[in-house]
Every structure is written in C-alpha cells, then in structure tokens.
Amino acid sequence: MFKTLGKATKFSVLAIWLVFTIFPLYWMFLTSIRPVREVTKKFYYPHANSTLDSYRTLFNQYAFGTYIKNSFIVSFAASAFVIFIGMLGAYALARYKFKGKAQIMLVFLVTQMIPGLIALAPLYLLLSKVHLLNTLIALIFCYVGGMVPFATIMLRGFLQRIPPELDEAALIDGCNRFTALFRVVFPVALPGIAATFIFAFVQCWNELFLAMVLIDSDANKTFPVAERSFVGAYYIEWGGLAASVMIGIIPTVVMFGLMSKFMISGLSAGIVKG
C-alpha cells in the first residue's frame, strides 16, 4: 500500500516537473508557428493556420545565417582553445609536485567569486587599445580567458583519475611530456574533455553581455546579440523572437541531450573528487 502510494507520488512529482520544464519551450514553439497577425491570439496546439513565416523572416529579412555562423566560429574556437590551455595547466596540476601549487590553485578558484560583469568596461578599453573591437577574435580571447579557470580545475579532476603509469610508460617509449599528454593521455581523458568542451561551448553560445559591448557591426554579431534586436523600446516582435529561440536552442540541446547521461559520471569524477 505504502509502496504504491510512494510510487504514485514519485511519478506525479516527476510528471509535474516535466510539464513545468517543457511548457515555456512548447509555448515558444506555438508562438513561432503562428501567423504573424495572430501572434497575440492564444491557441494551445498547432493550428490549421500554422506557418513557417517567422522562420523565413529570420533568414530573408534578417541575416541570421551570418549570426549563426559567427556564433559557431566563436564558440568552437574559444572552446577548443580553452581545452588546449586547460589541458596543459591541468596536467601540471595533476602530475607534478612543486612549490606554489596550492597558491596557483587558489588563483584559479578565487576567480569563481569575481562577477564577470565587472570586466565589461576594462576589456572594452583594453581591446580598443589593441584595435580588436568589433572582431570575433576579441570575443574568442575574452571567452577563453574567462573560462580557463573552470576548465583547468575540471580537467585536473579527470586527469587525476588516469593512472600516472600510463604517461610514464609513454615517456619511456620516447615521448616527451608534451607529446605524452596529447598522444597518450588525451585519448583516455576524452570523455572528460568532451564534457568540458560542451560546458564551454554552451557558455559561449549563450553569452550576451560581452558580445553586446564588444561587437557593434552587423556582420560580426553573434546569435544572442542579434536576437536582442527583436526587442524594441516599446514593442517586441514575438513571432521572429520565438522562431530564433527555437533555432538557437538546437545546437546546445542536441549536445546536452547526447551527453546528459555521461555528464553525471563525468561531473562526479571532475568536481566531487577534484
């Protein structure tokens, strides 16, 4: 009796949370397929008048092809760099004993306390001095810089679980530390690296404020900045916004979906034990 009751509670709680989680996205989807004139009317399921017009607008009236491309370039490049730099740092922290190691860990950990937003103004000034304002490279640099600490700490957790005998064997076989890291350790650590990469990618893909401050020209806008243009001072173009939201979530949701099982085990290694 108690068991069935417990089970019933469990599955109703899970069901309620599922509905609550999905509903905003479902509602955005319905908004995105409404005819533009009917955007403010409420129908709760796909309607006979449904149309893909809002999606067409994104690519015909606005240059969303370009924005998506920009976001992909920035997110991929920044995540790849951060993995490279993070792996080097993580390797040193996981494999060597040296003076000042604890202090260096502290340097990385303290960054997690710093509101990233305070960097907006100084980075704008710094990048304007080196004439990198309005470029994707500037964004890539800033994202890498911002994400290095978390990536290093997380990757260190993964590397610590790989037996050191593995790279010692590689050293005896004639690798140096650097090639041992990337030829031998890298493939073994791949699940953890993939998890870190996806975290980084999702962060870059969704980042708004730095991109807003650093990028001005239409040709270099990233996806979130472009989406902001649907928000006017007095009026929001809900149809186009909804369509862009639906498109913008595809890459991150696909990545997350593919990885969700694996994220848990990865995290329990990287963060809990790290």
Partner: peptide, 14 residues
Amino acid sequence: QGIIFIPWALSGFL
C-alpha cells in the same frame, strides 16, 4: 533526465 536538463543549455537572457 535529458529533457529536464534542457534549461541549463539555454540562454538565461532569452
């Protein structure tokens, strides 16, 4: 799990 993890993959602003 895959579905209820989705919010994390989305942009807070959007």
